[in-house]
Design a protein around this nucleic acid. Structure first.
Lengths: 213, 213
DNA sequence: TTTAATGTACGAACTAGTGAGTTCACTGTA
DNA sequence: TACAGTGAACTCACTAGTTCGTACATTAAA
């Protein structure tokens, strides 16, 4: 048979097992919340057993923190490839906002994990060294864009990068995180594909009009 | 002794007991989430017993729904006394936004319950007749303001009241719902009283500049 | 052969919910 | 006015089922 000595088709694979547990746990925690998620359920959805969860992660809480850390790391790495320094400040802001819009929409589990972590008063993220120090690359980009816009006299100067980031995040996060109650009360699905372009444009207009006022 | 026949100091009081359970349950669910909240803990924090929770509400889930319904009703009643029809559209919008800002800040438990309900995919709110139909009075006000602004040629016409409501809610909800992770990652407390006026003004500017662009 | 990785079975603690009985306020009746 | 009757409000103790975590045995790989 084919190469049994190489990396192909290993039955016992530390990384593979860890990664599978983490992926399943992320889905489960994002779906049910920390208290609502069940370790036995997570184990059942993997090809391994509950014993392995405790072997690799130590316990339910550490598994949750690991899932949270991985989710943040994923989003951060996506933000890395953001190159808008060659654009006009208005266009750069717009592109940054739209990238955030796209990332959030493409990663609903991340949004849900963040909501869940906030329900728990951010106690885990505050304790995690990997997360509490993790800077946001998008913020540096934003700082540069704002600086260029202000120098050119085109942007207002009573807000900083974090304020603008907050506005963009608010919009993108709300659209995902609160869609269920919003839909139940107002009968409008904020994630309806037919409305996507409208919201995306709206966010860009919102931020740019505010900054250039 | 004084009037034993009147309403004073009743030991057995249906309404009082129900209300106390509901108040404690609201705090507990808002604090721990649905799955994280403990019926025994809720009972312990009341002056009555767990049996009474089942006697009056039927079960944990019905208690949660009752707490959610009461929270929404409270917010809606606050929105009732909103009279801005005499103001210029720009000022009216600003005042509406600031009222929402104030209400959300004053009712963190409501925001948390909504977050929690969204984690549960809004399954309870969708089933609740009391909630799924409950219209938002602020939305009617908003519709009128937008109409006046558009007629006067001062507001853009590519957004409806629900879109504007969404922007305002996004900002106000995010500031409360995500403050823990935001603070852990960026080191800025969005609820710092010193920054309150700045955010309040920022929200008004944001919406007005967008609408009048 | 040694050790890392894995599976099975189990237990201690917790948790939602209930069965059964008690107390209290009030009402009609003698 | 005394009092038995009644139903709502309430207490206590218990159980059936769940859930996290682990002891112990086993297997594959180095």
């Amino acid at each position: 048979m084919a190469a049994p000595s190489s990396e192909v088709e290993r039955q016992r694979d530390k990384e593979r097992t860890r990664a599978e547990i983490l992926a399943v746990a992320t889905r489960e925690f994002a779906d049910k919340g920390y208290a609502g998620a069940r370790v036995d359920e997570i184990a059942a959805r993997t090809s391994t057993t509950k014993r392995m969860i405790y072997y690799y992660f130590g316990g339910k809480e550490q598994l949750y923190v690991a899932a949270l850390e991985r989710a943040y790391a994923t989003i951060r790495s996506l933000e890395q490839d953001l190159d808008v320094d060659h654009l006009e400040p208005e266009d750069a802001i717009r592109q940054l906002a739209e990238l955030t819009f796209d990332h959030h929409e493409a990663n609903p589990d991340f949004i849900r994990l963040v909501s869940i972590e906030n329900i728990h008063h951010g106690e885990h993220i505050a304790r995690s060294e990997a997360l509490s120090g993790m800077a946001n690359p998008a913020l540096d980009v934003l700082t540069r864009i704002l600086g260029r816009g202000r120098e050119a006299g085109r942007f207002r100067d009573d807000v900083d990068a974090l304020d603008v980031h907050m506005v963009i995040s608010s919009f993108c996060v709300f659209r995902l995180a609160n869609r269920h109650t919003f839909s139940a009360i107002f009968g409008r699905d904020m994630l309806d594909p037919a409305r996507r372009a409208h919201y995306r444009l709206m966010l860009g207009d919102l931020v740019v009009e505010y900054l250039t006022a």
